[in-house]
Amino acid sequence: MKRKLPLAICFIMGISMMVQFFIPHPVSLEFSSVIYKWIIVLMAFALVLAIGNLIRHHTTKIRRKSIDWQYSIVTLAGMVAMAIIGLTWGVDPDSLYQTIYLNVMAPLGGTMFALLAYYMASAAYRAFRARSLEATLLLASAFIVMIGFMPFGQYIHPRFPAFAEWVMKVPNMASQRGILLGVAFGSIATALKIILGIERSWLGGKE
């Protein structure tokens, strides 16, 4: 029953929404509108699940004094503090919540993303070697695109940016389309398998 009920719901709703796609009648549209609203509510509850999980995970770490348990206190304190600040003083543009968000959260997030530049430089230096024909082609196109998309690329040759644009729009797009087509079929097959109950890994393990 624990597995049969979710499978039954998945099958019924999957087939219903597939059928609904082909019926433009107002009754069908009303049905889909109700379902969408239910999905919005369910997804909001998934957040509650995530928050509960976070609290449980970190309180367990604190209780057991696992490795770096002190950081768990910082995580929980930050979460509770922001919730209290937002609920008490609001989330308007000039609120404390917004000030903390823009002056703490935003720079922290930006810092983490900025690390990418260092890793990219290090990876490019370490691994971008022309070991084979394919690797040489990869390197050459990387150079062309990098120079072409830089502002002064146009000063090296007026047609350089157009050539870089061509590399992105023709060979790059062609190969991406091929992969995208395969990925699309994979997605359709997986969706069909989930609706028909053939694919059950989302329930956790096999029967």
Partner: peptide, 24 residues
């Protein structure tokens, strides 16, 4: 991964990479 844009990074940094549908 099926994330087409991340494939070059994985190809560079990893020993083996499954591309797109090979993942499925």
């Amino acid at each position: 991964t099926d994330s087409v844009l991340q494939l070059p990074f994985f190809v560079t940094a990893c020993d083996y990479t499954l591309m797109g549908e090979e993942l499925y």
